[in-house]
């Protein structure tokens, strides 16, 4: 809870703050909960003055009212999507990665999540000229790979350098560090000019460190992180992408083929059902506005070009549902197209 002292409230003098503190009224909440006449006696202020201070606090801390026109102008003036630079992906996501929102890319291990995030970073810098912050939590950022992707696309050394200069990478190893990073972005103690996109690869790597703890530390850190992310995304018009993973469950279902009450056990056949679920738990499930699911589809091998097909499906989105919410991407040495 915020301290009274730091609030700079109109009529409260230093000496009356001291008296209040002696009477154990130190935070805003204490002040609001205290009997008005007692406060008046302590601070030697009149009742209307005390009420004025209370109102001041309420207006300062209540959620602000914005009318629809203002809200629309803000959204209208700035763009609402960042193109992914991949045509088919833009179609299924109705224009690209949503700005001021949290996006999740999930998939099993080895499904091409990191490769897609490299490509998104490159395309964002290349097409929009903005800066991208890549938060690397498992040492997966490979500048060599990014350089190779640009090289096969036929960029000159100068262009490559200027594109790569705008991809900023920070290594983060714990959840606490990540929260600290977002906090300093929020407080503007860390300023990255022209920032358009933040990619966190990957969140489970940090969250899993808290697995098996009895306390709920991990969850509370995740909550703080989400709040900061939302604030940053809105305040600085940034798109935030989190990489999540999937794990597989196996259910052993017993299905009765012939259930006539007599010979059930003889005809029982056990089937295994593979289930996949997104990690990070129930709380996280509803946080991202756009969820993209990646699946390794098929490896294609030809003499001329060989590539892996990756199936992308939109699991949930804030935009109107498209008719088809799936597309196939091509992962090759050029990158993802």
């Amino acid at each position: 809870m915020q301290k009274l002292k730091s609030q700079n409230l109109g009529n409260l003098s230093e000496s009356s703050l001291k008296t209040l503190a002696q009477n154990r009224i130190t935070t805003i909440l204490d002040f609001l909960e205290e009997d008005v006449s007692k406060l008046s006696a302590l601070t030697k202020l009149s009742l209307p003055q005390i009420l004025a201070i209370r109102n001041e606090i309420f207006t300062k801390y209540s959620a602000p009212l914005i009318n629809g026109t203002d809200l629309f102008t803000k959204v209208f003036k700035t763009r609402s999507r960042i193109s992914t630079g991949i045509e088919s992906l833009d179609v299924v996501t109705t224009g690209g990665i949503p700005v001021r929102c949290i996006t999740e890319i999930c998939g099993l291990a080895e499904s091409g999540k990191t490769q897609l995030s490299f490509q998104l970073a490159i395309n964002c810098v290349k097409d929009e000229g903005c800066t991208v912050l890549y938060v690397d939590t498992k040492g997966d950022f490979s500048a060599v790979r990014v350089q190779k992707m640009l090289d096969t696309q036929g960029y000159s050394h100068k262009d490559m350098a200027s594109i790569m200069y705008k991809i900023r990478v920070v290594h983060i190893w714990t959840m606490e560090e990540l929260v600290e990073l977002f906090k300093s972005l929020k407080n503007k103690t860390l300023i990255i000019e022209n920032l358009a996109m933040i990619i966190v690869d990957s969140l489970p790597c940090l969250m899993f460190q808290h697995l098996g703890d009895d306390n709920k530390m991990g969850l509370s850190l995740l909550n703080v992180l989400v709040n900061y992310s939302r604030y940053i995304a809105n305040e600085f018009d940034v798109a935030i992408i989190y990489i999540n993973i999937q794990t597989r469950w196996i259910d052993n279902d017993i299905s009765d083929i012939e259930d006539d009450g007599e010979s059930t056990s003889a005809f029982r056949e056990s089937t295994y059902i593979e289930k996949r679920n997104r990690c990070l738990g129930r709380y996280w499930e509803h946080i991202p506005t756009l969820v993209l699911l990646l699946e390794k589809h098929e490896d294609v091998y030809r003499e001329s070009d060989s590539y892996t097909q990756i199936k992308v499906s939109v699991l949930s989105s804030n935009a109107v549902k498209n008719e088809n919410s799936q597309c196939i991407l091509k992962l090759s040495s050029v990158g993802i197209t």
């Binding site: 912050l133 890549y134 950022f141 490979s142 500048a143 060599v144 990014v146 350089q147 350098a161 790569m164 200069y165 705008k166 991809i167 900023r168 990478v169 920070v170 290594h171 560090e177 600290e180 990073l181 300093s184 103690t189 860390l190 990255i192």
Partner: peptide
């Protein structure tokens, strides 16, 4: 306040190679 070392991809490329 902790400061974060933010490097750009060019620097990382030099380091990696």
């Amino acid at each position: 306040m902790k400061t974060f070392k933010i490097s750009n991809a060019t620097e990382l490329w030099q380091r990696e190679t």
